[in-house]
Amino acid sequence: MGLSAGLISSRELGRQLVWGFFFASILAAWGLLFAMQPGLDLPAGWQDLGPDYLASLCRGNAGTAGYMPVLAMWALMALAMMAPTTVPALKTYTDLGHAGAASASGLAALIAGYLAVWLGFSAAGAAAQVLLSGFGLIDPLGRSTATFLNAALLATAGAYQFSRLKQACLNSCQSPMMFFMAHWRPGAAGAFRMGLKLGAVCLGCCWALMLLAFVAGTMNLAFMGLAMALMTMEKMPVIGRTLTVPVGIALLAGAAATIFIALTTTN
């Protein structure tokens, strides 16, 4: 009996350690993004810890800073914004662990698979930022300087809110227990594959909203916070069902207003 209790305690400790590292990583990502803010005065002596490099990642023009620094910024942004939105799914997986179906290594593998998908999205987002910056369509803060691009991004995100793919992915995000029942695979390798599928479903929900960073600015912390809150609430079964349509209408209205203002200003 004592050995059994010890094993259960050890498993629970392992899961708690994974949770601790998960949340510490999110806090670290937000902290690094804050340190990279343009115009931030860092305390004297911090240069020895490397914050000057972190701050330089996005203070220069993305077209001249190089791909890897921009990728680092996008990866931090994805971790800071998207990892919190998957907490309900991870909690569901952990609850399964109390019945012996999941383990600490499985939880870690699930998180790794999920983040791998968003790292791939970050690679594409960073490439897009560097490319658009090279054409003069993105300013040094990652904001679109072209009216047509702003309108297109807002219209795309708005229209996607009404798409069947968005709804299908959102349904899976809102029902993590059903997701795991449909895709369950045992062991850490199976958890990693489930993490990839969970990441793909999450990407299907949120990619268009994430691209609005080009409208607000890829280094805009206020946008990151609001977008994270919106995407988290969208994944809540009750609240989420009431948000999708209003958000879509608001984004489409924003696209129309952007075009209207540009036309009236030109005339």
Rank of each mutant, 00 (worst) to 15 (best):
G2K: 12
S4I: 12
S4W: 10
A5I: 06
G6R: 13
L7Q: 15
L7D: 12
E12Q: 13
L13P: 03
G14C: 12
G14L: 04
G14T: 10
R15D: 04
Q16L: 15
Q16R: 14
W19S: 07
G20S: 14
F21H: 00
A24P: 11
S25L: 10
S25N: 11
A28H: 01
G31H: 06
F34R: 05
P38E: 08
D41R: 13
L42Q: 10
A44G: 14
A44L: 15
A44H: 13
D48K: 05
D48Y: 01
G50R: 01
Y53N: 04
L54G: 02
A55R: 08
A55G: 13
S56N: 00
G60H: 04
N61F: 09
A62C: 06
A62V: 02
A62H: 07
A62M: 10
G63K: 05
Y67F: 15
P69Q: 03
P69T: 07
M73C: 10
M73F: 02
A75I: 15
L76H: 06
M77I: 07
L79M: 13
A80S: 11
A80V: 03
M81L: 03
M82C: 13
T85V: 12
T86K: 03
V87I: 15
K91Y: 14
L96A: 13
A101K: 13
A101N: 10
S103G: 08
G106Q: 10
A109S: 12
I111L: 14
G113W: 07
W118E: 01
F121D: 04
F121Q: 03
A123D: 05
A124D: 00
A124P: 06
G125R: 00
A126R: 11
A126E: 10
A126F: 09
Q129Y: 00
Q129K: 01
V130W: 09
S133E: 01
G136K: 09
G136D: 03
L141T: 11
R143A: 03
T147K: 02
A151T: 06
L154M: 12
T156F: 06
T156A: 10
T156V: 11
A159M: 05
Y160I: 02
Y160P: 00
R164H: 12
Q167R: 11
Q167C: 04
L170H: 04
F180C: 02
A182F: 08
W184F: 15
R185M: 10
A188S: 14
A189H: 04
G190N: 00
F192C: 03
F192A: 05
R193C: 00
K197F: 12
L198V: 00
V201M: 13
V201C: 13
L203T: 00
G204M: 01
C205Y: 04
C206V: 07
L209Y: 05
F214C: 02
F214G: 02
V215E: 08
G217H: 01
M219E: 11
N220Q: 09
L221W: 15
L221K: 04
M224S: 14
G225H: 06
A229N: 00
L230R: 05
P237G: 02
P237Y: 09
P237I: 08
I239N: 06
G240L: 06
T242K: 15
I249Y: 07
L251K: 00
A253Q: 05
G254V: 03
A257V: 11
F260A: 15
T264P: 07
T265G: 13
N267H: 09
